[in-house]
């Protein structure tokens, strides 16, 4: 009995440790975001100042630019995720359920195109976006982000679909259903939660992207949140507005936490549904 208590205590200690290490920097960001002026430079473990000034500055100082950027990020990240998931679901079906020559080669190629450092494709991508006439529009970013979301979603979904047993598809095939119908009727219900996991990770990646966002947009109206944060400024050159940066990061991280809280049940139940093979 004592052994059991010891074990569960140890377990909870571990849980607490995991949570604390993950959250401490975020906690520190929160207390810093409430500080003003020279308080920023002081080390404190508990909030010693409670000023909402930084939040006000972030949200309203630039005539609503930040809110605009925030909205852009939501639109762009969501569109990117929907687009890549749509392309990836059909592609993964083909890659995992249909036998054809060159399947492995194709998987490898998909992986390979995402192996170039982002910084190196910048110039080529810039030319392309200029050429397509989508420079400084949200389309430029949605387009560019598929370069890293697509290979990832395709690979993960392919792995996932491969693990589903043959039986679930057989009946539909016998009924003469077309592959598109099979995806919609048979796989989507099962995949829905898997889509959530990859979608969430892809969403975060698109939400946090900085380099492309900076390069392919040139007006405050089209920029996204990470670029917006990098443009938060003190009153003078060299001055870094720590309080505001922290306030902004808290603001942009909250929706993601909400997303995870909403979808985390799906993440789990979904992948359990994946285990129907038995």
């Amino acid at each position: 009995m004592a052994m059991k208590y010891l074990k569960s205590t140890a377990f909870y200690v571990l849980v607490v440790f995991i949570v604390v290490q993950a959250l401490f920097p975020f906690y520190y960001a929160i207390i810093t975001s409430f500080k003003s002026g020279s308080h920023i430079f002081e080390i404190t473990y508990l909030p010693n100042d409670f000023s909402l000034q930084n939040y006000k500055d972030v949200l309203f100082k630039g005539n609503g630019t930040f809110i605009r950027n925030f909205w852009n990020s939501i639109v762009i990240a969501t569109s990117t995720v929907v687009l890549s998931l749509f392309i990836a679901v059909t592609a993964s079906y083909a890659l995992s359920r249909v036998r054809f020559r060159g399947r492995s080669l194709m998987l490898m190629t998909i992986l390979a195109v995402s192996m170039f450092p982002q910084i190196a494709v910048l110039a080529g991508l810039f030319e392309l976006i200029k050429g397509l006439g989508i420079y400084n529009t949200p389309y430029a970013l949605i387009f560019a982000y598929t370069i890293f979301t697509l290979p990832f979603t395709v690979w993960v979904l392919t792995t996932f679909m491969r693990d589903l047993p043959i039986e679930i598809e057989e009946a539909a095939i016998v009924d003469g259903a077309t592959p598109w119908v099979i995806i919609r009727r048979v796989f989507l219900p099962l995949m829905w939660p898997a889509l959530v996991t990859t979608g969430l990770l892809a969403f975060i990646a698109a939400w946090n992207e900085f380099l492309f966002a900076l390069t392919f947009t040139s007006s405050m109206d089209t920029r996204t949140v990470p670029v917006g944060i990098s443009m938060l400024s003190g009153n003078s050159e060299h001055e870094i507005p720590w309080g505001m940066i922290m306030a902004a990061s808290v603001i942009v991280t909250l929706p993601l936490i909400a997303l995870v809280l909403i979808f985390q049940r799906k993440i789990i139940s979904g992948l359990t549904a994946g285990g129907v093979k038995g």
Binding site: S36, G37, H39, E237, H238
Partner: peptide, 14 residues
């Protein structure tokens, strides 16, 4: 640089 002058004389500066 000069920017530190005004900030150093800010109300809450030590």
């Amino acid at each position: 640089w000069p920017y530190a002058f005004a900030l150093g004389n800010g109300a809450d500066s030590k």
